[in-house]
């Protein structure tokens, strides 16, 4: 195992430390950690011009730690930058899991006075994720769920006149996505991925922003605990079947031995992102974004992947 920082004193002030950050080779006290955390999120939002005065932001709120912390951060930012926030929670219909995080989402929105819209798979598609996976099998659960969630988030954010959708992807998610796309030889997907979406523009696509893009998942959990944000530390029952879970474990093992591996993957991706985006624009620029014959949403084929998927289920 890689050695944790040897000192238990804060690197900045010498007071008792609350956390070891191996990727920075520093221990920090609660006050300096939260200060560093908040300034990193704000810097990310500023650097990628994620937020503009007067915008209406739909916060994709699952009720897990990442989206709850992002909601708190955006709420804090909204005190100095006039932006309007509302949250969208998707209830996929996962027995014994989503009801708990849904409760957290409702509680946090009530506390911060942020309007919340709950949208369910059952109401929109006539089936829950649980019932869908009984027929489809659990192996591709995250792919199905992801397509359905993205579809609903985009559709309802647009319906509610949002300028942007804020997604709680953290730097661990980013490193995993980069590795997964490399391991699957799907580099074009990376051209459409980033802190800010928009490689393919269409009036029906709402821009997605990721303020936690450069923030490690463990830091988010620590911040939630330090700030007294009551989070459910629970795992989606389908997550263990996903390819992402394999990549997550692989990267965490590498991180333990070679600290900062995950952030280095994110940085390497960002250094090449422009080239990959240009590649997508060159190829896709000649193609027209179509409207799905079945649901009318934007897509690259005659029938979108969601409608194809639901038709086969």
């Amino acid at each position: 195992m890689a050695k944790l920082a040897a000192s238990s004193k804060c690197f900045k002030c010498g007071k008792p430390a609350a956390i070891s950050l191996n990727y920075m080779q520093q221990d920090l006290c609660q006050s300096h950690f939260t200060e560093m955390f908040e300034s990193r999120v704000k810097r990310t939002a500023r650097e990628y011009r994620m937020l503009r005065k007067g915008e209406k932001i739909a916060v994709a709120l699952s009720g897990g730690k990442d989206s709850c912390v992002m909601l708190h951060m955006l709420h804090g930012i909204s005190k100095s930058l006039p932006i309007k926030l509302f949250a969208i929670t998707i209830d996929e219909g996962i027995a014994g899991y989503r009801c708990r995080t849904l409760h957290v989402a409702k509680r946090e929105c009530r506390m911060l006075k942020v309007p919340l819209k709950v949208i369910s798979f059952h109401k929109e598609f006539g089936k829950t994720l649980d019932s869908l996976l009984k027929k489809k099998g659990v192996e591709r659960s995250c792919s199905f769920c992801g397509v359905m969630r993205r579809y609903l988030l985009n559709k309802f954010a647009r319906k509610m006149k949002a300028d942007k959708i804020a997604i709680g992807h953290n730097s661990d998610d980013v490193a995993q996505t980069v590795m997964m796309n490399l391991m699957r030889n799907e580099p074009e997907r990376l051209g459409r991925f980033g802190p800010l979406s928009g490689a393919i523009e269409d009036e029906l696509f709402i821009t997605r922003i990721k303020p936690l893009f450069l923030t490690p998942e463990r830091d988010i959990a620590a911040y939630a605990i330090m700030k007294g944000i009551e989070i459910e530390f629970s795992e989606c029952p389908y997550a263990r079947h996903a390819f992402r879970q394999y990549v997550r474990e692989m990267l965490n093992k590498a991180e333990e031995k070679y600290p900062a591996t995950k952030l280095r993957i994110v940085r390497a991706f960002l250094a090449q992102q422009k080239l990959m985006q240009d590649g997508v624009r060159m190829r896709r620029g000649k193609e027209k974004i179509l409207r799905c014959k079945s649901c009318g949403e934007p897509c690259s084929r005659e029938v979108c992947s969601l409608c194809t998927m639901l038709e086969r289920s």
């Binding site: 609350a18 661990d172 996903a242």
Partner: peptide
């Protein structure tokens, strides 16, 4: 209280280890 890796622990301490990295 959250503790860094270098924090010494004794039998008198109450220790809680939390797994915080999850899928979903």
């Amino acid at each position: 209280k959250l503790a860094p890796g270098g924090k010494r622990i004794s039998p008198k301490d109450s220790v809680r280890v939390m797994r915080v990295i999850f899928g979903g």
